[in-house]
Structure formats: structure tokens, C-alpha cells
Amino acid sequence: MPAVAGWFTGEEDGFRLLGTRCQACASVFFPREDDHCRNPHCAGGVLEEVPLSRYGRVWSYTDSRYRPPSPYVSNPDLPWVPYTLIAVELEAERIVVLGQAAPGVTTADLAVGMEVEVIPGVLQKDPEAALTTLTTWNWRPRR
């Protein structure tokens, strides 16, 4: 089950993030925008769903080694697993998209400007109930 409905589509080879483009000014948004153009210089226009580029370049990255403090919600009953965050520049869309690195990818594996690709990922998995597995996207170095 997608962690957020309508933000991505497809399987491994056809996996794509979904954004929206304003027909008036051509601005692209992710997360998607369904109500109005977020460009402050645009009077607004019809927004259309667009698949975003599968490949981009690392704009920045960091790791998260510690459980977030209050007021952020994290389940204290689950073990904390460090993860790597990557900000990826999609050149064609002229936007930066944030996401977790694929499992096993650490900050030591990354460099600013490196090409990466978006792939399906798992945000949360309940080992006892496959229906509650929440899917999302990850970034990994391009092969």
C-alpha cells in the first residue's frame, strides 16, 4: 500500500514519481499540487499530472543516526535504524526532490553531482500483515 496515494506509480523498471505541471507557467511540483499553482508569479492555471524523471543528480545528502526528539513522532517500541537522506536535482523539471537512500546506501557511497535513480522502497513493513506494508520511493546510485 503506498505511504501516500498518488505520489508514485509503477514497478521496478517503470517506477516513477508523479508531480503536477501548471499549464500556464510550466512550473512542476513535487509533492504534487492539485488545487493551485504554487508559483507566486503565476496567476494560476490548470494543473496536469506528469511523471517525473527517473534519474537525477545528488544535490545534497546526510544521515540520520538518532531517533528524532519530541515533538516528532516515532514508535519507541520499534528499533531505531539509521538511514541516509538524499536531495536529488531533477534537471528537466528544475526541482529538488528529497528521499531516503535505498537500503545499504550510506553517505560513504554518495557524492554531490553523482547520478542516482528512483526505485520503489518500503517505508514500514509489518512482518505479520503484508497488507500494512507501506511503500514509498528510494534513491540509489545509477548502475
Rank of each mutant, 00 (worst) to 15 (best):
M1V: 15
P2Y: 08
V4R: 07
G6I: 11
G6N: 04
D13K: 14
G14N: 14
F15K: 08
R16W: 05
G19M: 09
G19R: 05
Q23L: 13
F29Q: 05
P31F: 13
R32L: 06
H36R: 13
C37I: 00
R38A: 14
N39E: 10
H41Q: 15
G44P: 03
V46N: 11
V46C: 07
E49L: 04
P51G: 06
L52F: 08
R54S: 14
Y55L: 14
Y55T: 15
R57G: 07
Y61H: 08
Y61Q: 01
Y61S: 05
Y61F: 13
D63W: 06
D63V: 01
S64R: 06
R67E: 03
P71M: 10
N75F: 11
P76L: 11
L78D: 06
W80I: 07
Y83K: 01
Y83I: 01
E93H: 09
I95S: 10
V96D: 03
L98G: 03
Q100Y: 00
Q100I: 01
P103M: 06
G104P: 06
G104C: 10
V105S: 01
A108L: 09
D109S: 08
G113S: 09
E115D: 12
V116I: 06
E117D: 08
E117I: 04
I119V: 15
P120R: 08
K125F: 04
P127T: 00
A129H: 15
T132M: 05
L134M: 08
T136P: 00
P141M: 01
R142V: 06
R142T: 12
R143L: 09
